[in-house]
Computed example of a mutant assay.
Amino acid sequence: MMRELTYYVAVSIDGFIAGPDGEFDRFLFEGDHAADIGKKYQGTAPTVLAEGAGFPIDGGPFDTVLMGWNTYAVGLPELPNPYRHLRQIVFTREHDAPEGSDDVEFTDRDPVEVVRELKAEEGKGIWLCGGGALASVVRDEIDRLALKRNPILFGDGIPLFEGRDYAPAAFRPTGITPYESGVVLAEYVRV
């Protein structure tokens, strides 16, 4: 069985994964949704933050995380190796590896080719962490969506998928879980 690529990300109800200036601090990180979603998607918190909070990092659904440069750079300079418990691949054509990022793979290769190679390898799932530009490039390779829909409107910002020049794709819901916090975990699989 081939590995699956899951786009697991927080998103506003108007479809943005970050605000106009790349901010994401309006997303709800605490509430009744946090423990439940954290358990289901164990290992998706940065290693040092998970360890500091006592969250387990092993046993989750993913062993590989993919990021565009802007998503990766959110943690710099403090977290140059954010998910050291996972294989980390950052797609960039313009940036060099920062100091302390020894366990991170930086590549300027075609993301679609890389994803197809990863899918053919043995292992757990592949997590597309962000962002919207990378998601647009690999959209036809995404097998699952796991969207933490937050009860906020950004009005503008970084969309879930950048651009709108792609063919429609059908996904079937596999779970819709609303929480008192207002967050809704919406999970889908490609039809």
Rank of each mutant, 00 (worst) to 15 (best):
P61G: 10
E78Y: 00
I57V: 14
Y8W: 04
G68W: 08
R87H: 01
L5G: 02
L79K: 01
D103W: 01
R109M: 07
K39D: 14
V11Q: 00
I37W: 09
G43N: 06
L76D: 09
V112E: 06
P98S: 11
A53E: 13
I13F: 15
L28A: 10
F16A: 01
D103L: 05
G100D: 09
H95P: 00
Q88W: 13
A97F: 11
Y83W: 12
D102K: 09
V74K: 15
Y41G: 00
G31Q: 08
G22A: 11
H95I: 05
R93H: 14
D58W: 11
N81K: 05
A18C: 09
E30N: 08
E94I: 02
F55R: 15
A18M: 08
W69I: 09
F106P: 03
D25Y: 06
T44P: 09
F91D: 03
P82S: 10
A34F: 15
A10S: 11
T44I: 13
R116S: 00
T64Q: 07
H85M: 06
D102C: 13
E51G: 01
E94W: 11
D58S: 15
V112N: 07
D25M: 10
D36V: 15
F16D: 00
T71I: 12
D63W: 02
L86I: 07
R109G: 11
R87P: 00
K39C: 06
Q88P: 02
P20A: 15
A45H: 03
